[in-house]
Design a protein around this nucleic acid. Structure first.
Ligand SMILES: [Mn+2]
Ligand SMILES: [Mn+2]
Ligand SMILES: [Zn+2]
Ligand SMILES: [Zn+2]
Lengths: 144, 144
DNA sequence: TATTAAATGATAATAATTTTCAATTACAAC
DNA sequence: GTTGTAATTGAAAATTATTATCATTTAATA
């Protein structure tokens, strides 16, 4: 499921957040790319059209959007955290350690394992992270 | 499988690295704790007995050890990267998002999924990361 | 429209790494 | 054992990523 701008605005307001022009632009920017983007990369793009929007606002907005599950936050090896839309359908990642390319995949269910762990440890499990790291086809040749 | 110091020395040399006193101390320090430690925490401990060893050496050593699979590097949410020994037996993590407590678990096999992904995408998959995030029992009460 | 809590942007602060470089050292070859 | 050399070290500076502060502005509700 992908969220319309109107839907996102509603969800933000439902949670006591305002739907500001700055946030709209960040959302549009993230949504307009298929890639996972770092906060800095998002800032760069936003900045071209809207030089008055600060990097801090990008960070703040991304935090909120990720918390509400409206975007997907990715913790990769090396320097952490990039973002993409489409988070609402839960999925996992395959990441190229050389060029950073990310492939999403879904349909792999960890709820049974989660339940087992929860029972065994008493943890209240809220989330999980499943990432495969390797070399994409292009980089396999290059890195040879 | 846990590595003896001698074994680690051999592996380092096999890969063209020297087995220096500094590295020996870092290895001992990591091995002497059951916890996952950040680079800074390791430095702190090393520094008490060996104030002449610099933080940069800690970073460099941890990088090498992780690359060779002699220690286990953990990417948690928030501020990334902590380390522990015993990496050689592959395992996964359950992490408390409040206090940072880490529970290792093993026996969950992802090789079938890995193979499927590899076939479908052409990736040469080298590694993966499976982490569950939640609240440990103690923190569930506290955070209430 | 008036009210007010939330958001913004500028700046500074903090934190976590990485780079540089001259001096030192492990270790393989003799 | 001595020597040669590439690897390593520590100190310092540089980068990078993120968070905190605070005065000003603004979205959303009444
Ligand atoms: Mn999942
Ligand atoms: Mn695994
Ligand atoms: Zn690649
Ligand atoms: Zn906890």
């Amino acid at each position: 499921m992908r969220f319309s701008e109107k839907k996102i605005a509603t969800i933000l307001r439902q949670h006591g957040y305002k739907f500001t022009p700055q946030r709209r632009i960040v959302i549009q920017t993230v949504a307009s790319s298929q890639d996972h983007l770092t906060a800095a990369a998002i800032y760069e793009r936003v900045h071209q059209e809207h030089p008055n929007i600060g990097l801090v606002t990008i960070y703040r907005t991304l935090d909120i959007l990720a918390k509400l599950g409206l975007i997907c936050e990715l913790h990769a090896g090396g320097s952490c955290r990039s973002y993409t839309t489409g988070a609402s359908e839960h999925h996992h990642h395959l990441i190229c350690s050389n060029c950073g390319k990310v492939i999403d995949f879904s349909g792999y269910d960890l709820s049974q394992l989660e339940q087992r762990l929860s029972l065994e440890t008493g943890f209240d499990i809220e989330d999980h992270l499943l990432e495969f790291i390797g070399l994409c086809q292009a980089c396999q040749k290059e890195v040879r």
